[in-house]
Design a protein around this nucleic acid. Sequence first.
DNA 1: AACCCCATGTTCTAATAATGAACCACTACC
DNA 2: GGTAGTGGTTCATTATTAGAACATGGGGTT
Lengths: 244, 244
Amino acid sequence: MPTEPAKAPHSQTLSRGLRALEILADAAGPLTIAELAGRLGVHRSIAYRILRTLEDHFLVMRDDSGRVQGAPGLAALARGVQRGLQSAALPELTDLANSLGMCAFVAVWDPHDCITLVTVEPRHGPGGVIQQPGSRHPFDRGAPGIAIQSAHTAQEWAQRSPGEPYRPEAAAARARGYATSRDEVIHGVSSVAAPITAPGQLPAAIAVVYATAAHAEDQDTLGARVRSAAGAIERALGAAVTGD
Amino acid sequence: MPTEPAKAPHSQTLSRGLRALEILADAAGPLTIAELAGRLGVHRSIAYRILRTLEDHFLVMRDDSGRVQGAPGLAALARGVQRGLQSAALPELTDLANSLGMCAFVAVWDPHDCITLVTVEPRHGPGGVIQQPGSRHPFDRGAPGIAIQSAHTAQEWAQRSPGEPYRPEAAAARARGYATSRDEVIHGVSSVAAPITAPGQLPAAIAVVYATAAHAEDQDTLGARVRSAAGAIERALGAAVTGD
DNA sequence: AACCCCATGTTCTAATAATGAACCACTACC
DNA sequence: GGTAGTGGTTCATTATTAGAACATGGGGTT
C-alpha cells in the first residue's frame, strides 16, 4: 500500500442509525428516546428522525410508554447470514446437545469477536447454561475463540484480525483438534470446542458448555465428539458447495 | 386525527442502507455491487458508500470475488429481540420437538407478516421440515398466522394490522385454543399452532409442523400439547415480569 | 498479444438532505 | 399550580450527500 488513496467518505446518517441498533441490542431493556440520543451523542431530534426511519422498516418498536426496543424485523435481516453453515450445523448440534445433555452452539468469526450463531439446548435443559444466539465474546475468552484461532497460524491470524491477540493455547488445540476453557466466560462453566473450516465459509467453531462440577474427567471424550461433529458439518458444507 | 400535523421527514440515507440489508437478506446468494445498486435504484457510487458504512459495522462482508452478503454482525443486532419470549419459549420448544418428533417454533407478529423467531428441530430430525429462523410468512398462510389472529377479534385486528385480512378460521381457533393448517405454506406439510399473549409482549404463536402423511388423526392431541406449551410460556413470561 | 468489456474504487461540484436549536403539547410528579 | 420530564414538530443554515465523470485492473475472446 504505497500511497493510501484516501478513504472514501462514509455515510454519517447511516452509521448513526446502525449505532442506534447496536445500542438497542446491547441495552438491558427498552430505552427512552432521550437516553438513546445521549448514548448516540446526537441531538434528540436527530435520534427521533432516525427512530422514525427504523420504525418504518420494522426494526424497532415502542412499548406502551413510548420507549424503544428492537423489533422482529431484525431477525428477518439476520436470516441469510451464513445460511449454509446454519443448516449444516443444526442437526449435529441437536444430536450433540441431546446425547450429551449439554448446551451446544456454533460461533463464527467476526473481526473483533466471535458471535454465537445457533444454539441448541438439551432436552430438559432449563437448568443448564443458555448461550444466547447473537451474543459476542472476545477471542481471549472461551473455547470457541481458541478453536477458531487454532485453525490459523499466528501469522495468518495477525493478518486476518489485526490487533486481536493470538492465544498460546491455540497451538495445543491445533494439535489436538479441539480447545477447552474453564471459568473464562462464566465462573464454574467449562467449554469444549472444535474449529469448522470450509472454503467460502467464515472460520467458525462448534462447542458445548457444561457446569465444571459435573463431567469433570471425560474432557477427551467431549473433544472427540465435537471434533467429529465439526467434521460432519464440514463434509455437509463441502457437499452443498459441489452439489448446488 | 383531525389535521394530520404533517409527517416529520424520514432519513433517506438510512432508509436506503436498511433497504440494502433487506435486499441482501432476501437475495438467494451474494450480490455484486452493481446488482445491489440496481435493485436499490440508486447510483453505483452511492451503493458503494453505503456498503462501506455497512462493512464498518460488520453487517455485510465481501466474498473472494468482491460480492456482497450479510455478515454475522446482523445476528448480534437481533440478539435483543423479544429476549424474554425467546428464553421462555426455548425449553418448551425443545420439549415439544423431542417428545413429538416434530419441528417446533415460535413466530411473532409483525405488522405485515409473522416472523419465525426460534426453532427447534427434533432429535433425529434432518429428514423433517426445517423452519428457518427469521423467515417471514404472510398471515394468510399457515397455522401460526391464524393462531396470532385468533387472539384478537376482527375489530382489534383491523386496528392492529390495517389492511391485513382477518381469516375466518381464527374464530374457530379462538374457541378451540389452537389453529391448524394444511398445505398452506408447503405442500404436504401440516401445522398446529396456539397463540401466546402476555402483557408487554408482541402477539406470538407456538407451532409444530409435520408431514401430513404421518400423524394424520391425532390433531386434537397436538392441539392440546401446543396449547399447554403456550400456557407454560405465558406463565414464565408473567413470572419474569413480576419477578424481575 | 492487443483488444474490449465489465467490474470495483475514487474524485469532484451542485444542490439536496441532514442538522440541531428553538418551540409546542402533554403528562406526571412534586 | 407549577416544574421538569417526556414525545413531537418546525425552520434557517450548512455540512453531507448525490451522482456524473474519471481512474484502474482483471478476464475473456478474437
